[in-house]
Amino acid sequence: MKALTNRSKIAVDKEYTFMERLYFPAIIKGMMITISHLLKKKATLRYPEVQKEFAPVYRGKHVLKRDEKGAENCTACGLCAVACPAEAITMTAAERKKGEEGKYREEKYAEVYEINMLRCIFCGLCEEACPKEAIFLTDEIVKTSYDRQDFVYGKDRLVEDMNKRIDITKRQKKY
């Protein structure tokens, strides 16, 4: 057929040269290549003894952030749930009572906040949707488990521990 453009270039050569006909030159060449890898440094990462450092923007397990005083940022606006393509997030909102100012930053808070980690596709849209800097994905991976029920992460596993704060400033940087 007529060519469509003038940029085409034939990329194959199917004619065997005499040496190629003999099988052996190519075989010996190939074997030399493989044997040269015998002493090369192995590429293997010895997980779990050695852990690779993930990119700072890696989308792994979620965290519900607290502010500097330890109050939860989440106000249960539900944007993350709406933004979730897998519909993995559910929450119940509650009104903050008097005396709980140290626990919750805004007047509303999430009484129940659950992410179904088996449903989650780690797309990061919830993080983008959050207007309150509450939910972030971290560079931790979600652990495997034996039971399907184990994967519904409630607030006990999502809210960050004040003693082990997770640094998310790198995620927010837009370079």
Binding site: G78, A81, V82, E87, I89, T90, M91, N116, L118, R119, R148, V152
Partner: peptide, 8 residues
């Protein structure tokens, strides 16, 4: 079974 439809 693992989803709360009322959310959406």
């Amino acid at each position: 079974t693992d989803k709360n439809d009322t959310m959406f």
